[in-house]
Design a protein around this nucleic acid. Sequence first.
DNA 1: CAACATTTGTGCGTATGTATG
DNA 2: ACATACATACGCACAAATGTT
Lengths: 246, 246
Amino acid sequence: MSTDGSTTSNRRATDDIFTKVTPGRASEMILDQIRSLIRDGHLKPGDRLPSERELGDRFGVSRVTVREALRGLEANAMVTIKVGAHGGAFVTAPTSSRVSEGIVDLLSMSGLTDIEITEARQVFELGIIPLVCERATEADIEELLQICDRGDAAAGQGSSSMELSAQFHTRVAEASHNAALAMLAEAFYGPTLVSLRHVQEGHPEIGVRSSREHRQFVMAVKKGDVEKATAVMRTHLGRTARHVKG
Amino acid sequence: MSTDGSTTSNRRATDDIFTKVTPGRASEMILDQIRSLIRDGHLKPGDRLPSERELGDRFGVSRVTVREALRGLEANAMVTIKVGAHGGAFVTAPTSSRVSEGIVDLLSMSGLTDIEITEARQVFELGIIPLVCERATEADIEELLQICDRGDAAAGQGSSSMELSAQFHTRVAEASHNAALAMLAEAFYGPTLVSLRHVQEGHPEIGVRSSREHRQFVMAVKKGDVEKATAVMRTHLGRTARHVKG
DNA sequence: CAACATTTGTGCGTATGTATG
DNA sequence: ACATACATACGCACAAATGTT
């Protein structure tokens, strides 16, 4: 995606045989330029870009063109645009949830099958267990147990524990104390990708079972027993996977 | 990537039957609408959207507004816009490389440390080994060995084997025969994320060593020896990780 | 001081025309 | 001829700051 463009149009006498380079889209060049500024740190999160009109002047283009560039940046969540007196385009702080949201978007668009995603999830979630066992703090364990409690309560009244399950697994990943892994977990368990939601409906007893396994897992982590934790998680995920395939 | 969210959100939990007519931006509504059509399969990859003018007529907005919507879709790689006589906006087939490219974009924007990314890569790459051992075909093995050969040749003349290494690891992930996993691998080894590039420079002998380990790994996979393959890969990745940290 | 009105800066949308592939 | 890309020019809507009652 790039465009480049340099030579101004002087296609008269000195026809440059080099650089055929179609000027490309102006809006895209502006987009690239601003994006570079953000990437290189010249524009930090929270900074406000000049107004459309001023940008138009500076780049030598019209406001429409600037707006199109801003639309692109906005679509990629690099800026947020506010209207009003002191509005404008502000560089957004990239929150982890935004990133994982983006990943979800991409994944859901990519024509992956449920089976593939479920499998990837398994690989991922089993892989982080050693890290989790090694690094989980008291607070991590505590919170995970609380989620288990809530899961039990929800299962008791037949309420959907699917959401809590997602929360549990996400929280487990956070216990790896690695933002990249936490992000991926969030993406995998994001609301868009839960093609598993219907699984739960017909089988409310699964909730109880899951909750028990969750708790077993936490206890294993607490003891630092990687083997046990992995084993528990494997069967836990395995059953879920089987429901997906069937 | 991205999308959704943000600006002018007036998300009422309860959808009133009478929806506000001017909820937010016209361009965004159009974007959402077209995106839904793509997601739901009413617009399939390769399909051509109506022209700006016609879309403008249908939605009751001006061409500029339509264009902004298209820019958003284009920024998210959902459509590609071609100019010219039979140009227009075409729904793009989501290639896996596009997706992973998007993930790279997000990751590079997310302020993750090299250490975190390297670690995630390790988790992920060790996790797929069982799948790879189980599913790798003759062709997979063959191609991997070819990459090893090229690696040896490159290392022989001191050329940078970093790229080949990335290629190797990506190809390994492909041997899992799971598109989701292949995508993630591609993302992790994308050109933007190789914070390891400089590692290689000062230590050309590493290339030779890596290549040897690559070959060992392939042989283990060929025999279906998960244990051995995992062990080899673990030390291989471990050393790389150490270089990152130091 | 509080409630209301005005100003001002900003983005959002429209309409029309030209250039270009 | 037909499509996008861009410029120009204009008006509107919105939100915060500021002035006024």
